[in-house]
Write a protein that binds this DNA or RNA. Sequence first.
DNA 1: GATCCGTGGTG
DNA 2: TCACCAAGGAT
Length: 288
Amino acid sequence: MPDLATPLIEWYRENARDLPWRRAGFGAWGVLVSEFMLQQTPVARVIPHLEGWLERWPSPADLAASAPADAVRQWANLGYPRRALWLHRAAIEIRDRHTGVVPRDVDALLALTGIGDYTARAVVVFAYGGRAPVVDTNTRRVLARAVDGRSQPAPAAKRDLAAMDAILPPSDDDAAIVNAAAMELGAVVCTARAPRCDACPIADRCAWRAAGYPDTGDDRRRQARYEGSDRQARGAILKVLRDAATHAVPLGDVVPDWHDPRQRDRAIDSLIADGLAEASEGLLRLPS
DNA sequence: GATCCGTGGTG
DNA sequence: TCACCAAGGAT
């Protein structure tokens, strides 16, 4: 396999975006919060929310001392609000099991709520300078094209970690840069729809390019339609709860004109089951 | 491994 | 317009 690390490192040094979590001294807690927010939410939407969160809760213990409702409300419209709940739980776990310090090894991080293969390794590598393969959707696309000669990546799988590990250089510092560079390349050059191969530092060794950019198909499952979905109903309900000045809403006032009342009631039940809402005495509210 | 889970920008 | 896509994780 051709050397991908060297051109990626050189390209990254020249072209890396200036993102908040890349600033020197940003801190492991800041990195962890940013990674939670970045799970399926675009960079441009995360940045405006990150500073306010960290000013309000500068440490895991600060967040752990607040009610989950405050975390869900601060999460605002970032989407997938379970992440706010999970980040809050992770903060409690960090306080109780790790003396308030974000763990620096993969296994300890994986044991925390809401942290999986990507986030655990991102914290180890980007916050602590450790060595591990960090694989996100951008990296999977870059590897699928450059290494496998495919137009789109296969669905995420464990073997992606080994594939990334295989291109990491010996030095831990360089390996960290290659991890970041692969993500960056996928985000700004080797994009999903219209890749800018003329600006790609590894175009001369890209298997997909060498094969003539074949359409190798896409076996990833398509996202379910949002319009009319339970997710849409849950989102509408949770927005009502976030925006409620009194922090409690009579059940009859929760999206009363929803087109499908059974779907609305099902969504309320599922929010309660997820811990995102609580019901008592005919009132619905965010979790205390 | 398949499915579920928000929200908004974009080609 | 509208399907696609976005620094994933839990079940």
